[in-house]
Design a protein around this nucleic acid. Structure first.
Length: 671
RNA sequence: GCUGGAGUAGCUCAGUCGGUAGAGCAGCCGCCUCGUAAGCGGCAGGUCAGGGGUUCAAGUCCCCUCUCCAGCUCCA
């Protein structure tokens, strides 16, 4: 047999293992956990101690500090955890235990839920198993053998029964799938544990460098609400203690940046119980930030040819019956209100209102595309367990637009929306979209196959025309049409779905929309739904967490704080603040009866971007001493110069010239 | 909605075995008059989430409800 890696090729004896081949090829290192094996039909992942097949193969080592390597490491750690759980809870039934982003989990059916103390005990037992240096030994079984082996494991049996023959099985002439199990074998040869698993795995348990169990949670078997709820344990594992520590620190950082905490500490938001779950107040400081967001989107929508409308918050239920929302989302709408022999509902969507704006008179093809736009506040009765601050609220505001257009205009309109979203992400410092996904027809949907295919095609064409590589999320579309979702990453690497663009061929028919074309006949328009922020509240939360509350100058609720060094200079401080306000800046004076140090500290903890310290020197010269949040200080800056600089910075920020957070370390401040 | 965890002053938290509620910060008052991250002193602030129960006695033990958190499911 023959193995190749890159330009190197070696001949091997029959029965040689992957490890031996990698060694002969000179690429076997301590951090190699498995190998990608290509025997002519694409890469498969193989264990290091697995014997190579006859014939020629291409080998690539999989190292621990790679996405594939970490998956293998985490998968092995999940097995060790399941073994530890079985040792401590012999009656536990095992479900599945895959690697996931940043970690792994394993689901168990146990008599009682795991407690935090159980987690500690399981982790302690895992450390013993790591020290025991158990080898992971692969074996192949038939379906009957596998069913027999897991006779007392109903979840494993269900998995086994559902497996279909793989491409490899078919290619190799088997009409039944091959099942693989991994036995954990002690150094003395005793079998400690066996689990159904596709593999590959680490060579032995002591090759797990660092792990931590994180939390327990309930999880439905196979993710289905009508199946039993199992107990899931989440953990994480990394290629080094350092990598684990870094990850745990990142989790800590994410917790500290929670928008609910920042919103309260910085007096941006108030979410008292008296309001009700999922509802938020924007306090003055939060409202200033939000206003900048709203002003930005309003100006830009007008500049891009949208027409503003205002619509009410409640309307007769019939609108939602016609649109189909009542049928599809009735449970997620606030209940009806009986008024004068009619039932009214809080609006969960703005579409019907924009449609009524469209149908207010006969429309001509000359008017299309007609882009109707508003900041529309909607109310959805989100299930109690899903409400999550501003990220998942029961009342929120969409920068919602509906574009009514001809079929041949759909692609251009969608491209326009994608471009608009790109500009928005830049202006708000989120950089380029991290993911563009086209969602196709879901199971529960309305419309014909032809309509769906046409709309999906239009979205994919538009995504391609925008220059973004897009992915396809099969079956993730809305019930009335496919959509494009655009995601962005925040400052600490988390990904958020923000913009959504949907093609709708359904509502126009339901509401009997039409326009008069050049032929004098009625034609049905298409609709494009789009929300670029998605939800203003949600975007606000993402922005808040991403900036850690240190908003760029143009968004900051208080842009300038003037601090007199002593009460004698309060007059000049007020003059400075007045001048700043005259230039359109949000400026306040802190003349509280505190020491200068204490007032500087307040400005810093409140993350005010610009603090101006003024005393006798400054008053005499008409200057200010400038201190930037997180950045440098400058003395003797003429007030007029400073104000010009800040105005320019605000304008640049609004246009997206500066990334979020850049204000904190603006190099122009000098030493 | 489901599983688990939690709820004490505006915020962060302490409160032992069931014995009658405490700190720091913030707030208010006074002193201090200050040049770049916390000056000093005092005062006030509580239906211990809400309701019910056990007990001579409940923040503490039991039950119910509400809310929040972590997940699951869902997200037009």
């Amino acid at each position: 047999m023959q193995a190749r890696h890159g330009d190197a090729t070696v001949e091997l004896d029959a029965g040689a293992t992957v490890r031996e081949a990698l060694g002969r090829l000179g690429v076997m290192r301590a951090d190699v956990v498995a190998a990608a094996v290509d025997r002519g039909a694409g890469d498969e992942q193989w264990d290091l101690d697995r014997a190579l097949p006859d014939g020629a193969v291409v080998l690539d080592p999989i190292r621990a500090a790679t996405p594939e390597g970490r998956d293998i490491l985490r998968h092995s750690t999940a097995h060790v955890m399941a073994q530890a759980v079985t040792d401590l809870f012999p009656d536990a039934k095992w479900a599945i235990g895959p690697p996931v982003e940043d970690g792994f989990y394993y689901d168990f059916d146990v008599e009682r839920p795991f407690t935090p103390e159980d987690l500690e005990a399981i982790e302690a037992r895992m450390r013993e198993l790591l020290a025991a240096k158990q080898r992971f030994v692969r074996a192949e079984l038939t379906r009957d053998e596998a069913l027999a082996l897991f006779a007392d494991q109903p979840y494993k049996r269900e998995v086994i029964e559902r497996v279909e023959p793989s491409e490899v099985d078919v290619a190799e002439g088997r009409d039944e799938p091959t099942f693989t199990v991994y036995r954990n074998v002690d150094p003395d040869g005793g079998e400690a544990w066996v689990d159904l698993c596709r593999g590959p795995h680490l060579g032995s348990t002591d090759r797990i460098p660092a792990f931590r169990l994180l939390r327990t949670a309930g999880a439905y078997w196979r993710g289905q609400e009508d199946r039993p709820m199992l107990q899931r344990i989440y953990g994480t594992a990394w290629e080094s203690q350092q990598a684990l520590d870094d990850h745990l620190r990142m989790l800590e950082e994410a917790r500290a940046r929670d928008h609910r905490r920042l919103g309260r500490d910085l007096e941006l938001l108030h979410m008292p119980e008296e309001l009700g779950p999922g509802l938020a107040l924007f306090l003055p400081k939060g409202a200033h930030v939000r206003r900048q967001m709203e002003d930005w989107i309003r100006e830009e929508t007008l500049a891009r040819g949208y027409e503003p409308v205002y619509t009410p918050h409640v309307a007769k239920e019939d609108l939602w019956r016609i649109s189909g929302h009542l049928e599809n989302y009735g449970d997620l709408m606030f209940p009806g209100m009986e008024v004068e022999h009619a039932t009214y509902r809080l609006k969960p969507m703005n579409c019907p209102f924009h449609i009524l704006a469209y149908t207010s008179r006969t429309r001509s093809y000359r008017e299309l595309p007609l882009r109707i736009s508003e900041l529309g506040t909607v109310y959805r009765f989100e299930r109690s367990g899903v409400v999550n601050g501003l990220l998942r609220a029961r009342g929120f505001t969409q920068d919602d637009s509906h574009i009514f257009c001809r079929a041949d205009q759909v692609v251009d309109e969608v491209v326009g929306c994608i471009t608009f979203a790109r500009d928005l992400y830049r202006a708000f410092g989120l950089g380029e979209p991290s993911r563009v996904a086209v969602s196709t027809r879901p199971e529960k949907s309305i419309g014909t196959t032809e309509q769906w295919e046409r709309a999906e095609r239009a979205l994919m064409d538009a995504a391609a025309a925008s220059g973004y590589a897009y992915e396809v999320d099969e079956g993730e579309g809305a019930f009335y049409g496919p959509k494009i979702d655009i995601h962005a990453r925040d400052a600490i690497g988390r990904e958020w779905q923000l913009t959504t663009i949907q093609v709708d061929f359904n509502l126009p028919g339901r509401f009997d929309l039409s326009y008069i074309a050049e032929d004098g006949q009625k034609h049905e328009p298409f609709m494009v739904h789009r929300a670029l922020f998605g939800s203003i509240e949600r975007f606000f939360a993402v922005l808040l967490e991403s900036t850690n509350g240190a908003f760029p100058l143009w968004l900051a609720p208080e842009q300038v704080r003037v601090v007199p060094v002593a009460a004698d200079f309060a007059d000049y401080a007020r003059d400075v603040a007045e001048a700043a306000r005259g230039a359109g800046l949000r400026a306040h004076v802190d003349d509280a009866d505190d020491t200068l140090g204490a007032r500087i500290r307040s400005a810093q903890t409140e993350k005010v971007p610009v603090t101006l310290v003024v005393g006798g020197d400054e008053r005499t010269a008409g200057t200010v001493a400038v201190r930037r949040y997180g950045g440098g200080q400058r003395k003797d800056v003429p007030l007029a110069t400073l104000i010009d600089e800040l105005r320019t910075e605000v304008e640049d920020g609004r246009r997206g010239a500066l990334p979020v957070g850049a204000d904190a370390s603006d190099g122009s401040d000098g030493p």
